[in-house]
């Protein structure tokens, strides 16, 4: 118990004294997960809206695939991305400049996009499907173009879309398996909150691990608080 209290106090001190190494890790985590969330939002929100608003052959199969993706273990995604990008993999030997290399921030972003995007698509799809189907017809009757009507429906579903983004962020900021496999937890390069907590715990640096854990807990708390706020407003 003494170790925990001492670690907690030291962790808080490091956090508020502006410890450079600690804040570097926090900054990298924010950059990686922020970029992954942005890409997931740009791709996932339109795709979710499309799946929620249009009917086409095979839509149910696509929906089933999205739901499957929502429950995919991150470590399996890490393995898939690793195999895809490694020198003996499918994309690695091509050496195309836009294909990320293993053990880089780009590879970590790619893995996190693959984790977050089914969640963003799935939650967005559910949110726009919940909007009154008569509303879209009414908007068109008022002179909205298809694009204007879709944008308005998305605005009506905004609480669900924000929940989708927060859910996507929650899934990647606290994830360890995939970023460890494709990022490698390299100091000053690919070390993020979750991989650093694992490493420092193994080393016995509980104060540092607790400091990082406090930040992660704070982020998780803020994430859930935001979701709860939006759900309360939506009722």
């Amino acid at each position: 118990m003494e170790v925990v209290w001492a670690g907690l106090i030291e962790g808080l001190r490091m956090l508020f004294s502006g410890d450079a190494y600690l804040w570097e890790i926090i900054g990298l985590s924010a950059r990686v997960s922020g970029a992954a969330l942005l890409i997931s939002a740009l791709l996932g929100i339109p795709l979710g809206a499309l799946l929620g608003l249009t009917h086409f052959p095979g839509r149910r199969v696509v929906q089933a695939l999205v739901y499957t993706g929502m429950g995919f273990p991150p470590v399996v995604i890490g393995l898939a991305v690793y195999l895809l990008l490694s020198r003996n993999g499918i994309l690695g030997p091509l050496n195309w400049p836009w294909i990320p290399q293993l053990f880089t921030v780009s590879a970590m972003v790619l893995a996190q996009v693959i984790i977050a995007i089914p969640l963003v698509i799935g939650y967005t799809m559910a949110a726009v499907s919940d909007v009154d189907p008569n509303l879209r017809l009414q908007l068109r009757a008022l002179g909205a173009t298809r694009r204007q009507a879709t944008w308005t429906v998305l605005q009506e579903a905004r609480q669900g879309v924000i929940v989708a983004l927060v859910g996507g962020l929650g899934s990647i900021i606290s994830e360890v398996g995939a970023v460890m496999m494709v990022g490698g937890n390299i100091e000053h390069a690919t070390r993020v909150l979750t991989t650093a907590i694992m490493l420092e715990t193994r080393r016995g640096n509980f104060d540092f691990a607790i400091g990082l854990a406090l930040v992660l807990l704070g982020l998780a708390f803020l994430t859930n608080l935001t979701v709860a706020q939006f759900q309360r407003k939506g009722q």
Binding site: D132, N134, L135, L137, Q138
Partner: peptide
Amino acid sequence: TTVFQRSALLS
């Protein structure tokens, strides 16, 4: 333009 039976207002 049309006014439908169900008013379908924006929130």
